[in-house]
Design a protein around this nucleic acid. Sequence first.
RNA 1: GGAGCGUUCGACUAAGGGUUAGGUCACCUCCCUUUCACGGAGGUAAUACGGGUUCGAAUCCCGUACGCUCUACCA
Length: 539
Amino acid sequence: MKYIPKDKWFFCPIATYLCKNKVHMENSAEQMVRVRFAPSPTGGLHLGGVRTVLFNYLFAKKYNGQFILRIEDTDQSRFVPGAEQYILDTLAWCGMTPDESPIHGGAYGPYRQSERKPMYKQYATQLIEQGNAYYAFDTAEELDAKRKEIPNFQYNRATRTGMKNSLSLPAAEVSRLLNENTPHVVRINMPDSEELVFEDLIRGEVKFDTSMVDDKVLLKADEMPTYHLAVVVDDYLMKITHAFRGEEWLPSAPVHILVWKNLFGLDQMPKWAHLPLILKPDGNGKLSKRDGDRLGFPVFAMDWSDPNTKESTIGFKERGFLPAAFVNLLAMLGWNDGTDQELFSLPTLIEKFSLDRVHKGGAKFDYEKAKWFNQEWIKQADDAYLANLVTPYFKAAKIEIHEPSYLIKVIGLVKERCQLLPDFIPQSSFFFTAPTEIDTASILPKWEEKKHCFFDELAKLYLVDYEQGQKMKSSTELEAHFKALATEQGLKPGDLMLPFRIMLVGGKFGPGVFDIVANIETQDAAKRIQYCLDLLSKN
RNA sequence: GGAGCGUUCGACUAAGGGUUAGGUCACCUCCCUUUCACGGAGGUAAUACGGGUUCGAAUCCCGUACGCUCUACCA
């Protein structure tokens, strides 16, 4: 294909033809793909939520479409300050920038439902006029009483005649109540027995019998829409072509389908895709924040502290996950590309993503595997990039970094043994400061005078080397020197390695012993040897 | 209770009528490294159950079981 400037390809018939926009869009081939993520800003963004964003984003970008963020804040009683900003921050951290949002703007705003309030009532009125909805005057108390009285009370065609609404009351009474501004809601009028069928992009054909669904509230007493009305009206007004949401929404799909049918026509309706749930590692339920607290892993993308309850919850970001790893592991929960590949960058995901490879069944979250993904991404990550991310942890641990290039070098040496960013501290602190905790217990059993002499000698030689300007620089040189000295004294080098390691790092961990000596100064090494020797003498 | 959705190793998944049911994480063994990790070589381990259809079923059909989601003037 010849190159077509991006701003020109709209006008190029060949490009339009080749453009992948039209996949899954059989009924309206010219439409631009538009998807939305529509969270309610009530708290931290949970794994499942971020994955919904991801699939939206991947799909949109795959087809050169637009990804919209719409804030569903119709429930004023659940408003939580900061939650919207948190969502924005999370998307930014993950690298999934919306094309349109409350802060990015766009041609279909406003993007907060609370600011769209005046737009909904007319649609509710239209439904009433068409006979697809009705006024209901029952108070919350009356409904509660009803629910107590009848165990599985449903407001539906069987019960609505016994309730206070414009279907059961005489017209004059209804007008009176309306004129007196009696608080009321608008409920959908579920038809008697109609089969509602739609094609779910993931599950195929899904059928519902309207006689089984109840008369959901569409417009609340405060004239705010419920989700059921808002999702339809806004998806229509914002020209959404594909609607992705969690599987928990499937049972209310018939309500939305019916509203679509009666308001805008089914041919205007976006394609639905109900994503499988992310399940808790043990048991089978939907993963909740509680499970993370209980099992010791994050569930939210980033730290969240609730301004009302003051409760704070750890996030993947602050636990030390790389955004690339987080996105990668989320993508693999319910999707794969059909090959054995598991490591994908965001651009690769965009390229490879396909809805027909999304699973139907829920996926249990496995924190161990999540950490493996992170380790893989740490291993691939650029050392300077990691240095940046890790610096705050060093500050928190009160370890001073004098020379950034030294940090970068150290990171290259230790990164393959770190699963999470904070692991860099124990894995590399000894490159900066002498260990304070020495695992002498691991030395003592095989300790002997000969070894003491050896190390005493080694320390002296290191001091000499330092004073002469550090002639021994490379780890190979240091190793050769060490082994020669050991052999000279009739000792097996191998028997000295573990004690030496412990003297330098404090325990049985860390990179190659001579890589460490080569990076700290020989004077420093000498000091550590002496310090440990003193400790051992005391035992 | 009702409706809807789902069900392959412990976990994530591949295989869409014919494979010794494959890979990855975790676990175990060994090699490398006299640490840990990385890397390498092996190992344990699965088609929920019962009927069909078929020469042949994880795969198609029907039941059953189990699980989950929903069943608010919450999303």
